[in-house]
Design a protein around this nucleic acid. Structure first.
Lengths: 194, 194, 194, 194
DNA sequence: AATGAATGAGGGTTCATTCAT
DNA sequence: CATGAATGAACCCTCATTCAT
């Protein structure tokens, strides 16, 4: 991915956007404040005016991205009534986001900001787990989903999705994931349906 | 995971073992040579006597772990004749390794050593992909595996496995994965079988 | 020479002045950044804020001293119309500078900053050669200077001067060189006059 | 100059020869023991078997080269009875050596091994000064040399010679100095003769 | 609100030296 | 005699952070 931040929005937003790109591309520990300053076209002073430290900047960024993810999950996934629609919605949402905003999805899937949040979980491990757990548990209660260990079934859903996003972001898959929504949702559903 | 590197073996091996643990626990960029020196009970000079740089140390370590993975895949997975046995073998191997040597598996699944190899793929993305591709393609040729996009099916296999290992290593799953081999293999097989 | 760098001037100038003294006294490779920091009363960060590297610091310093030398040569030597006056002007200028600013002259005569400039020539070898070549060639054209190999005559002029400065800076000669201008200019002129 | 040491002579001599080349080419402080080991084709152990430290190695080397210079001066310069022959002998000897063994002459003229000898004088400043002083003082006593400050006349002799050697070693003069002996001796003699 | 000069702890790395083999 | 693994002080440089403007 190439950097295309800066030049728009408030100073604070430009800093956050550049940090997001750089954390994804180079990792938190390999991204310096000067890197962020250069990428955002701002200044050291500006960064420390808006954030108390590099850690806090990462924390604010994390919170912001997690909140977006949670809102999207509620409106595009859990809004559906049945398990099969929810699975399809989840696949569809994440595949579309991968094409639209790869840095956002990259962060959700890979970032393990141990210096930012106390544990070492990615957004998808922690908040994403909640989404899939709802799908599975509600689905089992409704008899739509087979009666296997819920965590195994959660693993199948999010694992398959994340894996394909991974391969897409790494360039192993070269065409848009949006064309693979049906196949993927079908494979997942075959695995978990009662 | 807590550090438990050793006071045994050659200096070179102790350095490699400590580096592996630290790279997994803290990440490459957040691991310093003094960290490795402390953990391995050696000296700065010893590290630079055996390796030309921190990068080369990471490179040697990577090579070594990848080779182990490739050998294990050949003997414990691809040695089976049919797709279903192979899937079960793959799940079984990785779940067992997760319990036996979590640092090894952690490295395979999470390490994205962009400073070590040219691309940004984990061992499981690159070498692991080969294993699953063999399972799928051979299985499709034999009519055992359904005729969906091979990459989707690969994603289901390794995604589900990696996801569960992830949850286990992060402590979300608290009992040994070895007890979940059957359920997991069954779920995966339901997803990909013809 | 003992160190007498200052607590005056801008940080950048203090760093340059200290570096000049230390490079002359101890040599480039035997002068550390901490040495320069101590002598200039600044900080490591300040050095790297003003210069990108130790090499660049040396480069900037070199450029600055060479420029001073070139200006002085033009105004105090080549401004004279005839060869004999020019020789005397050159001797006079360098002997006076030796007493006034020994670190400046020391740098001009001894520094061979192969890490700074591509070749291995001192300021006096490179830029100083131009000055003496002008004296000789113009003088030969005017019939004032004998018709020997120009380089030999250049060698006599600058060699004699540099040698005496060397002996003065090393403490072999203990009285100011300013008192030896006439004798030196006379000896040189005897050697090169037609 | 390109390195052409090693492979012949005793281990000790190979180490000394390589050190001489490297000290001349890169400077004492910029030459490491590993550099000397590589260039001489020996081992760290060998260096420390024959010399107690890097400093002592430099000291031994220095002593050896100075002794050679003193012997040569006695037999090829001071053996002559009159000042003019001595001047010519000095020029001739040093110019011939420059062509035959540039590393030897480079060391004599440039090396200022402050870590080896207590003061900061080159071989030519210290031991060479003795040679020229003999020429001048004896010559003045015999009425052959003009009655100027002896140090000035010493400066003219060695300065001119060293300067031309410098230009030759730096590649400014491209033909052998041996062809310039007569001109140089003539110019010097014109400067100092009574 | 914004700037960037200044600071110094800490990073990767080199290297003189020691010593067991 | 010779080897080279091991040591750690010291080197150059980066970077998070502070603060006067």
């Amino acid at each position: 991915m190439t950097n295309a931040t800066a030049d728009t929005g408030t100073v604070r937003d430009r800093i956050l956007a550049s940090a997001q790109h750089l954390f994804v591309d180079k990792g938190f520990h390999n991204t310096s404040i000067p890197d962020i300053v250069s990428a955002s076209g701002t200044s050291i002073g500006a960064v420390y005016h808006h954030f108390t430290s590099k850690d806090e900047l990462a924390h604010v960024l994390h919170r912001q991205l997690v909140d977006q993810f949670v809102v999207l999950s509620a409106t595009e996934v859990l809004a559906f009534p049945d398990a099969q629609s929810r699975v399809r919605g989840y696949v569809s949402m994440l595949f579309r986001l991968t094409e639209e905003d790869p840095y956002f999805v990259s962060y959700l899937i890979f970032a393990r900001p141990s210096s930012v949040v106390e544990d070492n979980l990615t957004v998808c491990s922690r908040e994403g787990l909640e989404v899939t757990r709802h799908i599975i548990v509600d689905g089992q209660r409704a008899g739509e989903v087979r009666d296997l260990d819920a965590r195994v079934l959660c693993g199948v859903i999010s694992g398959a999705i994340m894996r394909l996003i991974d391969l897409r972001l790494d360039g192993v898959i070269t065409e848009p994931l949006t064309g693979m929504v049906d196949d993927t949702a079908a494979a997942i559903w075959a695995s978990i349906s009662a």
